[in-house]
Design a protein around this nucleic acid. Structure first.
Lengths: 214, 214, 214, 214
DNA sequence: GATGAATGAGGATTCATTCAT
DNA sequence: AATGAATGAATCCTCATTCAT
């Protein structure tokens, strides 16, 4: 079967250069997530990759381009996944528990993305990649529509639905942004398996109480 | 009558120098809130104050000291106010609606503070002024105790109470951090009077549903 | 007489900073004249001034601004002087010998200016300061008018007058641009007193033969 | 018939590699002429050739070597042609009109060469290829001798003959260096057929008036 | 012969800070 | 208290060059 060839061919498909670009993105993602755009230095990125600064320019045209690539690579898939739920709406994902579980799973697998996005949001999204701008608006709009058409309408005044959307967003994302400080203040690691499971359960319960299914 | 004192006292209370320091703090607060520590330049601060850079050093010993002063001045009082609720606990502020209203009022009056703190939190609080470190930990701890001792205990598993505290925190603070981007994406101004009132109402309702008083 | 005060007041009028700016302009003028814009480094300028690179930025906003200032300061007066002749035309400066002598005197006092301008001309004048663009065009135009109205018209076809203007220009300016190489090839110093006097005489004679006064 | 050889020989004479080297020289010639040595980057050259930078090194050992090759290829033939006149002196090229026409023809066919050389001259000829140094000195010397031995001696003082040589040089070369700026200032294209013919005529006349044949 | 990747050296520029005035 | 000038350190970025492929 062809599947057995895959492992052998893989190295051929990822030449040295591509792998370096990937490693740069990895390093940059972590650093941008931790220190934001202004607080991250190409020197830091290069050091973490184990490469000299000018080499970065063989893969990305500028710091800004690197930042954009990080956002695109990291956030694109996440937004896509989230978009799936939102778009398939009342059909496959009618069960809010499923949605919450899926969201937590996706974010838990990419724990710096929320911080990355929060940095952007804090500064008004001046660097927000176009792709992100094109996604985040519609995503919020669609989430709102679904809530307006669903059970939320029976529990919340129409003009507070956007606030509900924002609240869900912040509960979901805030948990991850808080993780480093929380650990540093002695609160334990919010990103370990148990904590994540607890948060998933908690979040599910929270949604259930805010949007009871009668 | 006091009116007659005002003109005379005003200059005495706020001599030119003090007023400059204040203006520097104002400018710095906005800029740090928008761009974070690394993204804010003394040049930016000076320009906004209408003064040359070296003048800043007549009032604050360094960029870091200025940052600390901004955090202290801005966040100290807010934390104090919040601390009041938390500490007086089940007595004066038993009514959660009151707490929410008060929190929203305090944050609404200082809308960049949440962003200021979020920048810190995102980067693991490396600059967090000691005063802030000494406050934020206990604050969370106390909030947790209160919830554990209060009605929350009947509605949530004990080990999820911290998650509940975090959720409240993020709903409260996230609303303000989102304001600039939300407006920029065409969602309207989250900081105008109506929006704030709506959020207050929404937040109150949210708390009520998560912590029903039976 | 007030003239006696001048020496005393001069230091008061030229505070330290202004003098530094002047020294920067001097150094930059020489270097830009020798190596052109691209071939001149701020490091070179700073070294020649005896100052560190960032200090240059206390006086000029950028390399380009410095270059512009050099052109303005150096060439403005020269063009103004030349413009005087040209404009007063057939009146004061009817005598071409006078014009030649004056031009040679002005250029001889600022021997790098011709090279500075030639660098610009070679690259199509991409950096030509606006002031220069506004001068050089009209200057050529006016020179052409004068020649067309004067004796040249009797000696040259109308459509070759522009070529005559260019020829005069190149004879005048080329002499100075050639000086460094000429000396280096063992031809003697074109800028010493005798050589300049010889060139003045030669140039005068050249003009006389090309524009005989009958 | 010779036609039958052509198709076969053409590829042999200009194999792909040689043609690339030629194209590199073409691109470099233009760029060095416009921006000088320091102002020209290998990146620019490569882009104009449609090749990546390292490929340039398959044909020329360094930027400096490329520059030398450009000078050699471009200026060598021109100097050779001029040298012919100069050397054959009073015999074949006694007629100054012929000399002027030939010079204008040669320079008109290689209009960036004058600019290339002027860049060198402006910076004191630091890069002047040895071949160029070996040519330009003797060329000037020989031209001077010829003039000293010819009719010029009757019209000019002996010690001004070098000035006359320089003047001829600058009239000839300056016309071409001025072309881009002249066009840009709205003066028309100095390099089109009519303008060149006019300049040739003008130059001839200029020489005739400075060196009348009695 | 062509090129992707890597890099030492150096380019202009900014930043926080100091000091004399 | 305010500022012009100066500067060490660090910023992003470019350049010419090399080397393995």
């Amino acid at each position: 079967m062809s599947a057995s060839y895959a492992p052998t061919q893989a190295p051929a498909r990822t030449p040295k250069g591509e792998r370096t670009a990937e490693r740069i993105l990895d390093a940059a993602e972590e650093l941008f997530a931790e220190h934001g755009y202004a607080g991250t230095t190409l020197r830091d990125v290069a050091r973490r990759v184990g490469v000299r600064i000018p080499s970065l320019y063989n893969h990305f045209g500028s710091k800004e381009a690197l930042y954009g690539a990080v956002l695109d690579r990291g956030i694109g898939p996440v937004l896509a996944t989230l978009g799936e739920f939102v778009d398939s709406g009342s059909e496959r994902y009618r069960d809010s528990a499923l949605v919450v579980a899926r969201v937590m799973e996706v974010l838990g697998r990419h724990p710096h993305l929320p911080r990355l996005v929060q940095h952007e949001i804090l500064s008004g999204g001046q660097h927000l990649t176009p792709m992100l701008r094109d996604w985040i608006g519609p995503l919020f709009a669609r989430a709102r529509e679904i809530l307006e058409a669903g059970p939320a309408a029976r529990h919340w005044p129409a003009d507070e639905i956007p606030h509900l959307v924002l609240a869900f967003y912040h509960v979901a994302v805030g948990y991850f942004t808080m993780a480093p400080l929380y650990g540093q203040l002695g609160g334990g690691d919010l990103l370990d398996r148990e904590a994540l499971a607890r948060q998933t359960h908690f979040f599910t319960e929270l949604v259930r109480r805010l949007l009871p299914e009668d």
